[in-house]
Design a protein around this nucleic acid. Structure first.
Lengths: 153, 153
DNA sequence: ACTGAAAGGGTTCCAGG
DNA sequence: CCTGGAACCCTTTCAGT
């Protein structure tokens, strides 16, 4: 399951994170190697699942997604059945971009992206109707200072 | 700055978010159109910045990034100079994957991805040495339930 | 493991409806 | 604004070192 990239693998991953839309030649040049070895390494890392989906980053604001909320959730229910329903609810809702189960006092944190505050309220009402939670705190983002999916390799 | 995609644009964006590694032909088929119009629309949306960087999603755990923290920060300093220094510090640190300025009681939230708890402490000590903050609460993720960059188009 | 080359497929562009 | 086709570049594979 775990993977020890060598120096060349690491450089390839850094370049792919930076811009996956370049030709193999360009990436090979950037990492100081040539096409075929780079291609073989990329194929291997894809097969092992180290390299996953290829995607594009869209301009959320330009597309009308003006509201980002971080939602802190406490629950009293900790049984397996409740948890399974809660997880399914989160996975099924596309406005939930991130969901983490936490250690400590707060049980879950979500990142929710919606078009406006009203759309958040619709999401919130639907969620609490579906699964019982003890307390919910919503933190509204005023400004996205930084946003990246790149790992600090 | 804002952009009203028509139905075809929307379908293209959905397909690109799902998998940007397919050929134009495949994407055109998926959206019910053909190569050239899809290509022209993609080019236009790229030029306008609607479609940004193309990237790959890596398996963070397999690569040894086992610790994700959400960090809630309160500050008493609200002057421009302090804020500029704080923003620069966040942007310069690759382990900070997200940073938002918030409305309300808590001033900032960060998502920090590191190899282990010790690496988080190094990050934390360096940050508070560089900029003065009033209080810091770190929430440790036990489980990533969901993680996507896709907008709910 | 890397190099170089060859075949097939894909992107990009252009003429025409 | 879409269709189809032509040219060129890139990906992918393979034989050789």
């Amino acid at each position: 399951m775990s993977f020890q990239p060598d120096e060349t693998d690491r450089k390839i991953l850094i370049e792919l994170q930076r811009d996956a839309g370049r030709s193999l030649d360009e990436i090979a040049k950037a990492v100081g190697s040539s096409k075929t070895p780079v291609w073989n390494r990329i194929r291997k890392m894809r097969e092992r699942g180290i390299i996953g989906a290829q995607t594009v980053l869209l301009d959320a604001e330009a597309l009308g997604f003006d509201a980002t909320f971080f939602v802190l959730i406490r629950t009293s229910e900790h049984d397996a059945e409740w948890q399974a329903r809660f997880l399914r609810a989160l996975r099924d809702r596309p406005e939930v971009q991130e969901a983490h189960r936490l250690a400590g006092d707060i049980d879950y944190i979500l990142k929710v992206r919606v078009r406006n505050a009203r759309a958040y309220d619709v999401f919130y009402q639907a969620l609490i109707a579906e699964v019982k939670v003890q307390s919910v705190t919503a933190l509204l983002s005023m400004e996205e200072i930084k946003s990246t999916v790149a790992l600090p390799l």
